[in-house]
Nucleic acid binder design. Sequence first.
DNA 1: TAAGCCAATATTGTCGACAAAACACTCAAT
DNA 2: ATTGAGTGTTTTGTCGACAATATTGGCTTA
Lengths: 222, 222
Amino acid sequence: MSLLLEQPVTSADKTFFQLRKDIVDGVILAGSKLSETELSTKYAVSRAVIREAINRLESNHLVERKAHVGARVVALTPEGLAELYQVRESLEGMAARLAAINMTDEEILDLNTLLNSHFQTVKTGETYYQEAGDVDFHYRIILGSKNNHLISILMNGIYHLIRMYRVQLGMVGPRVTTAFDEHRHIAQAISNRDAELAEMLMRRHILYTKNNLLTKLVTESF
Amino acid sequence: MSLLLEQPVTSADKTFFQLRKDIVDGVILAGSKLSETELSTKYAVSRAVIREAINRLESNHLVERKAHVGARVVALTPEGLAELYQVRESLEGMAARLAAINMTDEEILDLNTLLNSHFQTVKTGETYYQEAGDVDFHYRIILGSKNNHLISILMNGIYHLIRMYRVQLGMVGPRVTTAFDEHRHIAQAISNRDAELAEMLMRRHILYTKNNLLTKLVTESF
DNA sequence: TAAGCCAATATTGTCGACAAAACACTCAAT
DNA sequence: ATTGAGTGTTTTGTCGACAATATTGGCTTA
């Protein structure tokens, strides 16, 4: 049922996925240094593999490298969040618009089916599936745009950083059910092939999410 | 005078810049295979350096890698160009809007000064400086957005691929002076701090450029 | 005591060699 | 003649060691 089952084939792939997961989940703290030798012993691979993984993490905007100095996990800041979501709003708004045009009837049907199944889990209040479900919904629309560059920029470029903010800040309270309603309206616009409305609703949805996360980030004073 | 003087500090840096230049300029043909051993002898560096360079080229969307198979320079196709410019239109439109808000008065002054100097070279018809000048103009606006994620996605993410299409297809004929006029109008909107107009003009400017390049790509039947 | 230089140490950058996988070619069988 | 298996070759993936650079700490000197 879940999308995007990227299979690791090489040792560098596995290490990259593992490192990425640990960073997104906060197991490796935001802002901390990534020592190549330390990681190579910890993950039981050579430094060459670690270096390749770190390079890929850099293109995912999750770490920053400086020559002869090393790599650091990015810090989570209000400014960074604001800039990230400004870009996300533009790109995913575009994705929603294109999805309303380019998704097949079957894909739209699947999207609505997914929403119905999410409705069940939202009622029970299982936060873990909320996170996964939200990502799944957005992924389908992104893929539905059928624009490979857009897909690459979002999925390989910035989405893991978005998830990092979401996972480490959380999304709780009334926002959960509100967001679900917004998803329904977006899906409705796409079902009606109303591209302009789909873009507008998606942009507003992301704007709300940004404000929700920004509030948490500021009040928790990271 | 020129912007973005990224200095190579390591051997991998130099190799990366050289390879990127050769690909953008067409010295290494679009669609061709990149053999690691071959490149390592040609550029007189170890395979590790070549591999690092290729990894970076991949995050620049200039090459595609497959595990255990190798890397290939991307192909220039009408579909790829259309998708790329669809994304570019959205992102640079956003950049122009933000630039109208965030550029300092001094930066706007420099932008107008740059345009005046371009006006001289356009009259003489020096195509080389046209290309460089156009890139310079767009770079200033992108940097003027002051959004680091947007800057990174455009400059490190897709702009070299955009340049690759431009360089290998060329931009000639009446389009040259027309594009210059469009630049002037965009600069005017930014000078007036009219964000909405700046975005609209930039989007249309990029749309025109796309159509111009698409025509060339189709008629030349690459 | 503070500032600056120098040496010792630790970390990143680069290299060549070996392992594993994909590719190409031959040869046999239908 | 074509397809298939099998072998030999080439290419990519991984590793450990060495080189070059940055950091740390101590020492000297004002």
